[in-house]
Amino acid sequence: MPVSALLCLVVAISDGDTLTARCGTPGAYQPMKVRIAAIDAPERKQAFGQRAQQHLAQLCFKQRATLHAMDEDHYGRTVANVRCGTTDVAAAQVSAGLAWVYTPYASEHPHLVRLQQQARASGKGLWAQPRPLAPWSYRQRYQR
């Protein structure tokens, strides 16, 4: 199924892997909550959660974004590959050590897996911790 690109303006950053974009034509904008595909950033209360959110804001807040919508998650958010300007946002977050490659989608994004291995090997971001806790494990443990 061909994926159409949406041109949007990023108007809010929720955390390190979720943003709100205003998409559509002037006068008929639709706000869209977007989950960046293939990554999972630390939760806001987790180590590096605030840094991940700030980094995403530096990349995208008040910037033009190109969204390639792929799916909708169980929270009703659009799951999309996101570029802010010319930057692949998932790759930028993973390279900076501010997001994990989300394991179920790792095989579809081998370039992200390589970037994560590089960030981990050089101790960038969350990889500076002795035992970083993946966000999915954090949610299981603390958000019941």
Results as ranks from 00 to 15, higher is better:
56 L>P: 01
132 P>T: 08
128 A>K: 13
97 G>L: 02
18 T>H: 07
105 Y>H: 08
6 L>V: 03
23 C>L: 13
118 Q>L: 09
14 S>I: 09
100 W>M: 03
20 T>G: 04
17 D>A: 04
21 A>P: 04
77 R>Y: 00
135 P>K: 08
87 T>L: 07
99 A>K: 02
113 V>G: 02
9 L>H: 09
56 L>V: 07
130 P>F: 12
117 Q>M: 08
32 M>C: 04
5 A>E: 14
142 Y>L: 05
104 P>N: 06
6 L>P: 00
18 T>N: 15
50 Q>T: 15
25 T>M: 11
123 G>Q: 11
9 L>K: 12
5 A>D: 13
51 R>Y: 05
104 P>S: 04
19 L>M: 08
138 Y>C: 00
108 E>P: 00
116 Q>K: 00
109 H>A: 11
125 G>D: 10
119 A>P: 05
57 A>Q: 13
127 W>E: 02
60 C>Q: 08
39 I>N: 01
109 H>F: 10
68 H>C: 00
48 F>K: 00
14 S>Q: 11
66 T>R: 14
105 Y>R: 03
76 G>E: 05
97 G>V: 04
72 E>H: 14
103 T>E: 15
92 A>Q: 01
129 Q>W: 08
6 L>Y: 11
138 Y>T: 02
114 R>I: 04
39 I>Y: 01
61 F>N: 05
122 S>V: 14
3 V>N: 06
64 R>H: 12
128 A>S: 15
54 Q>N: 12
132 P>Q: 07
34 V>Q: 06
131 R>S: 14
83 R>F: 13
79 V>Y: 04
9 L>W: 10
18 T>P: 04
15 D>V: 02
125 G>C: 07
86 T>P: 03
47 A>T: 11
58 Q>N: 13
26 P>F: 08
63 Q>R: 14
51 R>H: 12
64 R>A: 10
1 M>R: 12
43 E>S: 10
10 V>G: 04
74 H>C: 06
19 L>Y: 01
108 E>L: 09
4 S>F: 14
89 V>M: 05
4 S>G: 12
143 Q>Y: 11
40 D>Y: 03
3 V>T: 13
8 C>P: 14
19 L>I: 06
57 A>R: 13
88 D>I: 09
115 L>R: 10
71 D>Y: 09
142 Y>R: 03
47 A>V: 10
91 A>H: 12
88 D>Y: 10
34 V>P: 02
81 N>H: 11
11 V>C: 06
60 C>W: 11
7 L>F: 13
130 P>V: 12
77 R>V: 00
13 I>Q: 05
45 K>V: 00
76 G>P: 05
